[in-house]
Design a protein around this nucleic acid. Structure first.
Lengths: 221, 221
DNA sequence: CCCTCCAAAAATATCGATATTATTTGACAT
DNA sequence: ATGTCAAATAATATCGATATTTTTGGAGGG
């Protein structure tokens, strides 16, 4: 059992373990959209009592990864093209706002954090997909984390995850390496550190929109 | 036991009942910000087992009304001026977006829905605060509900509730009737139905900002 | 042949008890 | 006095069993 894919199991509380494990499974598509999440079934899979399972599922509803229908249990959140496009749109609006605020509040520690996350992301390139994805997200969130707007950052993080889910669903996680994503990241970071607010935002948004269009085209069902 | 204040108790599931009751108590300030929410205590208050209590608290964390610290229980979400101002800012951005989309998709049923909610809100004026607040929220949400963007509407609804909480905290729920809020609502609705997008949005945002400034000034502690 | 209704099965929701973990209290040593 | 550690206390987290509700499947009537 390797630490990379099994990020979940041996955490502090059973609830948290279940939460992380199920979250991973839904994000990566191992649990399919709309799939009925029966307590008994998950209880056995996770080797836990029903309480932590139930609570983990409740937490996942916050993240919009699980839907709860009162008296009728839980299911993995469904997906749709409309949903994907709404996520993309919201992401663009909210990350734009957050990045502008971050740059406005820029300071040396933030720049250093950014440099490090960028370095770690590139270092993780060859490794396990899950490891790279974690570093990739950490880099993107580091761009926003000087905004001084914690709720906004929370929304961005949530939307980021929902987006990544569509990426996994569209191509088993291995899709978007075609473009030179590496250069794009470098350019975004340079613009951000150089306080070229408008150009940093433009680069970031077109970075998202390009992958968005690609996925959207793949989704015509 | 009247239906107005006790919106909670006799609902379908125990969890849902507990959720609604606790939500009401936190929104109105009956449970103070930062207050430790002990399971045993709530179990007795709501006359329920620990599972539904726990689950209700988990659901409230989605709404950002409760904070959960792993292994250390739950507490009512804290408040701060920064938090209030972030909520106001996000609300303005997101409701602007949603209202524009709604007006763009306007159709006859939407306009009729709006007229009705507005009528109900005015009819509820004299009644119990909780009844009026519900109608008030329903009106504001009706403005947005033609956007075709369910997640955005969800965020708006959440932010609306968080904002209302600050209103209750600042003045026991009875604060903002000073201005002629009635006229403001009428004007917003007229502009929306008349498809005067820019002016509808301006009216809506200044409606929010005005109450926002008032509350913000009350909060200097 | 299809619809309705009832009984059986399955799943959810809830409970109360127990195990685990955090917090407090007070004794002891510095 | 003060800080540290350990036992006692209190709270959370978890479990397994039971009650409630929904879903399924099939018999009987239209």
């Amino acid at each position: 059992m390797n630490m990379a894919t099994e990020t979940a199991t041996k955490e502090s509380s059973a609830t948290r373990g279940a939460y992380l494990k199920l979250r991973e499974m839904i994000l990566t598509g191992e649990i399919e959209p709309g799939f009925k999440l029966k307590i008994e079934q998950l209880r056995r899979l996770l080797e836990l009592g029903s309480s932590p399972v139930r609570e983990a599922l409740s937490l996942l509803t916050s993240d919009k990864l699980v839907e709860r229908i009162d008296q009728r249990g839980f299911r993995a959140a469904p997906v749709s093209k409309e949903n994907f496009e709404e996520i993309l749109m919201l992401r663009c609006t909210l990350e734009d706002m957050a990045l502008r605020a971050s740059i406005a509040n820029a300071d040396a520690p933030w720049e250093e954090r950014l440099i490090l996350k960028h370095y770690h992301m590139n270092k993780a390139r060859g490794h396990d997909v899950a490891v790279f994805e974690a570093a990739h997200k950490a880099f993107h969130m580091a761009l926003l984390d000087q905004s001084g707007l914690p709720m906004l950052e929370g929304y961005c993080s949530q939307l980021y995850d929902l987006n990544i889910r569509y990426r996994y669903l569209a191509a088993g996680g291995e899709s978007y390496q075609k473009r030179s994503i590496e250069t794009e990241h470098q350019e975004i970071m340079n613009a951000a550190i150089g306080k070229n607010t408008d150009s940093a935002c433009e680069l970031l948004l077109s970075h998202y929109r390009r992958t968005g269009e690609y996925l959207s085209s793949q989704m015509d069902t």
